[in-house]
Amino acid sequence: MPAVKLRNITKKYGDFVAVDDVSFDVRKGELFGLIGPDGAGKTSIFRILTTLLLAEGGTATVEGHDVVKEFQQIRNKVGYMPGKFSLYQDLTVKENLNFFATIFGTTIDENYDLIKDIYDQIKPFNDRRAGKLSGGMKQKLALCCALIHKPEILFLDEPTTGVDVVSRSEFWQMLAKLKEQNITIVVSTPYMDEAKLCDRIALMQNGKIMSVDEPKNIISSFPKPLFAAKAKNIYKLLKDFRTDKEIESCDAFGEFIHVTLVSDEKEESKVVAIAQKYQTEDLEIKRIEPTIEDSFIRLMREQKSKEVSNGK
């Protein structure tokens, strides 16, 4: 039995289809990522699975329980950390934790092992009101509160959004530790570079799932050889590539431009030849392995190929 199972889930807000016929499974003990920008439908899926929102169509189960008929069983088995800080601002750290433990009929001591690593970091602020904590500490407290009743599944909605690189990396280390304790974790993020830290991911856009797989499989199914190009004037090169008929797609990626060709040519020399037509200075071209972001962009274009051009 999968930990989470969605079949043809659809959610509408008026005319707006937030979740569009979505089906996927999350396996037990898996670290599963929902990857996509704002408006992709990630939060609606979380709220449906945590029984806080009713879908218009389709079915879903969490730990085998139906999200509509057996919502009470689900609520005892899941931990949920919403994207927006939702603890009691005027209770202290300790009071918040006690409150959530009591609601679930447990105590802080009973499941102390589970939260110890994270709780130790905020323990010095036990008597501080949650509203007065820094962003990073709020996040740690929220995670402790979501874990205090030893849930079987943890739902984390964009825990790292707006957080700097260092704190993001620390947060993912905490998740890796929790996974060792056999908790299933479903996490959403708009940062494509975090995708590779998940066992499997669903790439989402406009309420639809574009792909569900292991990150390495998504990368290896990229259908074209991919090249990275660099030049003295990178913006000029990007504009030149956009006008070139032999270039299929070209997108800025940091200091490089990622390029695919209309042909299936695998050698760098072909891209070099194209770039040289435009008197490109200090040209550097190399064949590279795609990233999840490359795959995401490609899938987005396939999804609405009518309206979006290939970065041109």
């Binding site: 959004t161 707006g162 708009p190 913006y235 997108d251 987005m300």
Partner: peptide, 19 residues
Amino acid sequence: EPTGGVDPITRRQFWDMIY
């Protein structure tokens, strides 16, 4: 943080506007 939460294609179009 003008591009927070924005999809990867729009993020790039946004940077075109910046350029």
